[in-house]
Simulated scan of single mutants.
Amino acid sequence: MTLPLTLSNNMPNMPEQVGTDRVLIDQARAGDEAALRALIDRYEPQVAATVVGMLGPGDEADDVGQETFVRFYQSLDKFRGDAALGTYLTRIAINLSLNALERRKRQRWRFWSRDDEQAPPEPSVDGRDEQATSEREQAVHAALDQLKPAFRAVVVLRMIEGYSTKETAALLEIAEGTVLSRLARGMKQLETILKDEDLYD
């Protein structure tokens, strides 16, 4: 299956980029705002692809993307470089996106009548900037929105961001076998959802 979304072109683990990241991080720690801006500019597309894949385009994704870099800035002095910066930022973005999805779930239940025995409906793409993406991409985001967060995170990292199984497992702190299982189940669900839209290749 080919998802009609563009894979990330960022390769955060390239040796030369990791080297320049370390220089920029040291400069940013010393108060160099230009160095911090350079790091944000370098990784903003990667973070944006992650949060949009998880949440769909719109204000919520923008807020989570910004919060990702706020968290990075706040932890700048504690960042030891055990993981590549791109990996570190992606992990923050995924965790914040999962938190946002949990808030969505709580809000749906909060406003749902307790007297109604049916479960609340799954969220649609309302509130998102539908003009920002093509109809095809909107359909895929809507389909992703119907996946369980655990499946969605794996599909986004593997199929949209292009991370390997090993990298995805490290980012989500789960076993590689769990990544493969969730990916298979998530892609099967997407296939079922997208077949009705003639978007399954």
Rank of each mutant, 00 (worst) to 15 (best):
residue 1 M to K: 10
residue 2 T to M: 08
residue 3 L to H: 07
residue 4 P to Y: 04
residue 5 L to F: 06
residue 7 L to Y: 01
residue 9 N to I: 07
residue 13 N to V: 02
residue 14 M to D: 04
residue 17 Q to G: 01
residue 20 T to I: 10
residue 20 T to S: 09
residue 21 D to N: 13
residue 22 R to K: 14
residue 23 V to G: 02
residue 28 A to S: 14
residue 32 D to S: 12
residue 38 A to I: 03
residue 40 I to W: 08
residue 43 Y to G: 06
residue 43 Y to P: 05
residue 48 A to T: 15
residue 50 T to Q: 04
residue 51 V to Y: 11
residue 53 G to R: 09
residue 53 G to C: 08
residue 55 L to V: 05
residue 56 G to N: 05
residue 56 G to Y: 02
residue 60 E to H: 08
residue 63 D to F: 02
residue 65 G to D: 07
residue 65 G to C: 05
residue 65 G to V: 02
residue 66 Q to P: 00
residue 67 E to S: 12
residue 73 Y to E: 11
residue 73 Y to K: 07
residue 73 Y to S: 14
residue 74 Q to F: 01
residue 75 S to D: 15
residue 76 L to H: 05
residue 78 K to H: 12
residue 79 F to I: 06
residue 79 F to P: 06
residue 80 R to S: 14
residue 80 R to L: 12
residue 82 D to L: 12
residue 83 A to L: 12
residue 84 A to E: 12
residue 89 L to P: 03
residue 90 T to P: 01
residue 93 A to H: 08
residue 93 A to M: 08
residue 94 I to R: 02
residue 96 L to F: 04
residue 96 L to W: 03
residue 98 L to R: 14
residue 98 L to I: 14
residue 99 N to R: 14
residue 101 L to D: 02
residue 102 E to L: 09
residue 106 R to M: 11
residue 107 Q to C: 00
residue 113 S to G: 05
residue 114 R to P: 01
residue 118 Q to L: 09
residue 120 P to E: 06
residue 120 P to N: 04
residue 124 S to I: 01
residue 129 D to W: 11
residue 133 T to K: 14
residue 137 E to N: 06
residue 141 H to A: 07
residue 141 H to V: 02
residue 142 A to T: 03
residue 143 A to Q: 10
residue 143 A to W: 08
residue 144 L to F: 15
residue 145 D to F: 08
residue 146 Q to T: 09
residue 149 P to I: 11
residue 158 R to H: 06
residue 160 I to G: 02
residue 160 I to H: 11
residue 162 G to N: 10
residue 162 G to C: 10
residue 162 G to K: 08
residue 163 Y to G: 01
residue 168 T to D: 09
residue 173 E to G: 00
residue 175 A to L: 05
residue 176 E to N: 09
residue 176 E to Q: 13
residue 176 E to T: 13
residue 177 G to R: 09
residue 178 T to N: 11
residue 180 L to M: 11
residue 182 R to T: 01
residue 183 L to C: 01
residue 194 L to Y: 06
residue 196 D to C: 00
residue 198 D to F: 06
